[in-house]
Design a protein around this nucleic acid. Structure first.
Length: 519
RNA sequence: GGCCGAGUACCCAAGUGGACUAAGGGGACGGAUUGCAAAUCCGUUAUUCAUGGGUUCGAAUCCCAUCUCGGCCUCCA
């Protein structure tokens, strides 16, 4: 089945075919997090969509080499290209950690880090990101346990960055300006603007309100962007032919993608993903740098961008109080599986609205799929006269994903099939050659892309963090009261559990419980 | 000012010219079940797709205009 994907480069949906002559291997680079702070759920929507794309590629039979960087070079808070004004971001992070340490608010796992060491700060947030990403089921994280090079760190690629800058100067794509900074010359690269539509003649310098007048003057064109800035005062700095300083922030992706994925293809890779804000300037500049050095017509052949997430109908911002990290949501009792589903269920090219209602919806959805999974597992030996509904629906599920990752459509086909199984009853009598194990396989194939059932299973194991014995004691006392028909006492115990954040359900096979999510 | 998206039921969200008398989930309502709830199971819930025109035998889907919302135009996923 051919995957159709929207390519930002051409502004249209295209058939996806990899560069690999055998048509099997796909090279995929994702712009990952900056590690100056905890990643928020908007970041994770982008990373999760990349994960869904990667899993879809695998479902249809490709072998994916997926790389995601973790940006640990300390950029500036007002990082306009020329000047790097403002504070060093790594310095800001360090100060934040130092203050937290003084006030005793430092997270448990950070109590022994040295906030004055920028590498330690970066490591701290990088580790936090890996933990978060693991909880949300990013497949890449598990691979990176064995192959850490799949999650490269720019600070370990400074030398090839310097090499790239040298090459660009030799090719007349870059120049050393009067302020000592090396800039890329956008006018030397006619394709500049192809990805974003912001060609040099269309760019209104300073329209975004963030450029520095003084630095614009030394550049040949206002859109020229920094490749190397000498600055001995920067927290993270390295020697270079242009003085001690730091690299331009677009450089890392070009260098690491070429080194890890494009070594045998002259720096050309199949797929590159990021958030919509990466289109310009970040990815535009990556293309210019990379192609300027390789002479190839393409850097990535397909560009995949996820739209922004808004929260409760509004742009997410700290001042509105709707800014959430994964940790914030977990603290409110949301499960990683529900968060994952909530973040992937809206088409990646639509703006998604994250809501607590949606989180509840997603959790219920997952509970139903889990119940179906358990039921199929329990009855896996039972025969079916014909291929079951999930088995029959699997091609339609794949087809939906192949239509530019129509996750909602795919979930629709799954639900339609799922509703044809009555999980509250025994499987109907049959004698055919098919079995419920086939149905289970189909469900698992679908979940290999959605990636929620394993997370849900892990979460139910992790509930042992709660005081289970206390909960079970209260439930036992309540059931004793119920047997004695002491309804008042039973209801009091139920309320008590609810106050602890535990909802209980009396089923035909006894009482079960689950944590309540609060908004 | 330039470029790019979006507006489908109470909410989330598919569908992008003909099997649409518009998927799926949540909610709500009715029924089964229950000490009462919750959960579960069954059923019902948009003659209509922001608005106004147009193209067409046929439009939620194409075109034009209008309104509304969002993003990018050198911090940002």
């Amino acid at each position: 089945m051919t995957l159709r994907l929207y390519n930002t480069l051409t502004n249209q949906e295209e058939d996806f075919t990899p560069l690999d002559p055998t048509g099997k291997r796909v090279t995929f680079y994702s712009c990952g997090p900056t590690v100056y702070d905890y990643a928020h759920i908007g970041n994770f929507r982008s990373f999760l969509n990349a994960d869904v794309l990667r899993r879809t590629l695998e479902l249809v039979g490709y072998e994916v080499v997926h790389v995601m960087n973790m940006t640990d070079v300390g950029h500036m808070t007002d990082d306009d290209i020329a000047d790097g004004a403002g504070e060093d971001k790594m310095q800001v992070a360090a100060t934040r950690l130092l203050e937290a340490k003084k006030s005793g608010n430092l997270p448990q796992d950070a109590s022994d880090i040295d906030p004055t060491d920028p590498y330690a700060v970066a490591d701290f947030y990088a580790d936090a990101f890996v933990d978060d990403a693991r909880r949300l089921g990013l497949k890449l994280i598990h691979e990176a346990d064995e192959r850490p090079e799949l999650m490269p760190r720019p600070t370990r690629y400074i030398e090839p960055m310097i090499q790239l800058v040298k090459t660009l100067i030799e090719n007349d794509h870059a120049y050393l300006a009067d302020d000592g900074v090396v800039y890329f010359s956008v006018q030397s690269f006619p394709a500049y603007g192809r990805l974003s539509g912001n060609s040099p003649d269309k760019i209104r310098s300073g329209e975004g309100g963030r450029v520095n007048e003084a630095t614009q003057a030394v550049k040949k064109h206002p859109a020229d962007f920094m490749l190397w800035k000498p600055d001995p005062s920067h927290v993270m700095k390295w020697p270079s032919p242009w003085g001690e300083g730091y690299p331009g922030w677009h450089l890392e992706c070009s260098v690491m993608a070429m080194a890890l994925l494009g070594a045998e293809t002259d720096g050309v890779i199949d797929l590159h993903s990021g958030g919509e804000d990466n289109i310009f300037p970040h990815h535009e500049c990556e293309i210019a740098q990379t192609c300027g050095a390789t002479g190839q017509s393409h850097f990535a052949r397909y560009w995949f961008h996820t739209r922004f997430l808004i929260v409760e109908g509004e742009k997410m911002s700290k001042s509105k109080g709707n800014f959430y990290t994964l940790r914030d949501l977990l603290a409110k009792g949301a499960s990683p599986a529900a968060i994952r589903l909530e973040l992937i269920k809206t088409h990646y090219r639509s703006q998604a609205n994250f809501t607590f209602q949606g989180l509840t919806d997603s959790q219920r959805q997952i509970d139903r799929w889990s119940r179906l999974h358990d039921w199929l597992h329990k009855n896996s030996a039972a025969p079916l006269d014909e291929p079951g509904p999930l088995t029959t629906a699997l091609p339609a599920f794949k087809a939906a994903l192949c239509a530019d990752l129509n996750v909602s459509g795919a979930i629709g086909t799954l639900n339609e099939a799922a509703s044809r199984h009555d999980t509250s009853a025994q499987p109907p009598a049959a004698t055919g050659a098919h079995t419920y194990a086939d149905e289970l396989r189909a469900l698992n194939a679908m979940d290999s892309v959605l990636g929620v059932l394993d997370l849900q299973h892990q979460a139910s194991l992790a509930q042992s963090d709660l005081d289970v014995s206390q909960i079970e004691l209260l439930i036992a006392r309540r059931n004793t009261a119920r047997t004695a028909k002491d309804w008042a006492a039973a209801d009091r115990l139920r309320d008590e559990l609810l106050e602890m954040g535990i909802a209980i359900k009396d089923g035909p096979n006894g009482t079960t419980w689950s944590p309540v999510v609060s908004s």
